[in-house]
Amino acid sequence: MSSSLEKNMLILRSSDGEEFIVPEVVAVMSKAIKNMVEDECASNTIPVPNVDANILAMVIEFCKKHDESEAEAASDLKTFDSEFVNRGQEALYDLITAANFRDVKELLDALCQNVAEMIKGKSVHHIRIQFLGYQLFEILTSNFIWNIWCDRDFD
């Protein structure tokens, strides 16, 4: 537990310099931040590189809701999740990257489930229209990616 902070609040600083004051219980939903706090290497301000203010605000909103609603009905949380992930593709991909990088499992699950729903049951033609210009479509149609995937290390 971090002892240096009052009232168990942490300050998160986004890549573009904006600061957010967040309760520790909410911030540690990110495994990456949790590890920092546990190792006592978190000073007052925790930098969150690669995540801009806009996206960081969204991530915090999600974590807050999940922290508060632990006692609430699971269906409410599900509704919140489905509304939360209902965003444009650009924001969606940024959020996925942030959730992955900061290791927020619930958020990553909800986001990826949403992208999977977008692909599920659609014809190749529809996918082409929907994802055209986005990296996802390029991966779906690229020829050499498989080799990269095979070379990756399984930990």
């Binding site: 593709q89 650009e90 991909y93 940024d94 996925i96 990257t97 992955n100 990553l108 699950d109 990826c112 489930q113 992208v115 999977a116 692909i119 210009g133 986005y134 990296q135 996802l136 390029e138 991966i139 690229s142 990616i145 990269i148 995937w149 990756r152």
Partner: peptide, 21 residues
């Protein structure tokens, strides 16, 4: 991968989190 878009999902996420669903 060179991409025309500025946003990229990390590849391992794409495979292990999205395609597996």
């Amino acid at each position: 991968i060179s991409s025309s878009s500025s946003v990229n999902i990390p590849l391992h996420i794409l495979f292990s989190e999205i395609f597996t669903r």
